[in-house]
Design a protein around this nucleic acid. Structure first.
Lengths: 199, 199
DNA sequence: CACCGCCATGACAGTCGCTGTCATCGGTAG
DNA sequence: CTACCGATGACAGCGACTGTCATGGCGGTG
């Protein structure tokens, strides 16, 4: 059926549109159906109606195909921190940015949770996710520096904030009843404040 | 000259001793001399006087050869957290464990800094380091749970503590005059407390 | 209308990371 | 002495990833 869709769309031009999106969808399907390590990049390309070579023109490696959303997440969070009130305390500004990110992930709903299950199920993918979140922390730290926060406070606040985000996300991804992610995040941040103050 | 050493030692048995250590040393040398991506696993094995196949019997992939020390670090930190006074607050217990780890890294001195430079210079290696530290955070969180700390406080305290460790390490790795790492770590932890309290 | 250059894609060959499998042979236990 | 053990080598093979060249609709230009 995927083939049929591609066939009908092909009339619109030389190539079926949205090759990148088709690759992402094919990858999610295959990683879910067979598992990450029993899926080859050639499999993904074939299901998307493309050659393996073209896969690598769109994504740097076998893992990147799952991490487009992470890039948008980082942009959103960074913008949120930058746009926080100038007089907001560093951690408060970070919390504002992360809250924007939490709303985005929440809007993805079950898709975000399905993706989290796949990523969490394979070490290579989990590793890449950590790298993406680390990049987000660096970016947030840089924005804090632009806001006048000196080091190492900027780096520490950014890393702590992203750590809270990660813990809250892992909690939310497996929580029953799909609670709103922003609420989970806010609660986690409050927990951190208590833990650091009390310890 | 490496060959000469191996030759003389070979008389002590069928194989030169400490194949694993030779592989680690060869890898550090080559990654430093030529860079990570211009070194093949066959190169490493050859310099260590072994076959490529044997390399993969000692290390799971091309990256792991640099991360033996991280395993020992985790064991030490976990033990330190476990052995902290039972009435110590969670973050205080974590700080005690991390301080043990800081002393270990400090004792490695310039070797630790050289290794950090190599790891920091290559995305694949940096990614693996993040994964190792994440594993350490999980292990620390587990110990906190054993100490009676409930979730999500356990996970959050562990992640925040390891985040402080990471920031302090990056700072220390490039700091002039080689300050003692435990002191850098303690200062970073104090900074975090201030940042969280103030924000 | 005829031409042309653009560019996403396909095709193909090659390198390297990593694995499965079998053979080798000193050391060690019995 | 023999029989086994265990670290290693040798070799074949798969899959991730790259460099390079060819293809052919599409849009603009004369």
């Amino acid at each position: 059926m995927t083939v049929a869709v591609i066939g009908s769309l092909q009339r619109m031009g030389r190539w079926a549109p949205d090759a990148r999106g088709r690759l992402q969808q094919a990858a999610m399907e295959l990683y879910t159906e067979r598992g990450y390590d029993r899926t080859t990049t050639a499999d993904i390309a074939e299901r998307a109606g493309l050659s393996e070579r073209t896969y690598f023109r769109h994504f740097a490696d076998k893992r990147e195909v799952l991490f487009d959303s992470t890039g948008r997440l980082e942009q959103l969070v960074v913008a949120g921190v930058r746009d926080a009130p100038a007089d907001a305390a560093p951690l408060t500004a970070v919390a504002a940015g992360l809250d924007d990110g939490a709303q985005l992930l929440d809007s993805f709903g079950d898709d975000a949770r399905a993706r989290a299950a796949v990523v969490g199920g394979h070490p290579e993918l989990a590793e890449r996710e950590l790298a993406k979140l680390s990049a987000m922390a660096r970016a947030v730290g840089e924005v804090l520096r632009e806001r006048g926060v000196p080091d190492p406070a900027a780096a520490l606040t950014a890393e702590a904030g992203v750590a809270v985000f990660r813990v809250a996300f892992e909690q939310w991804a497996v929580a029953p009843g799909r609670p709103p992610f922003p609420a989970v995040l806010t609660a986690a941040l409050a927990e951190l404040r208590t833990a650091v103050a009390g310890g």
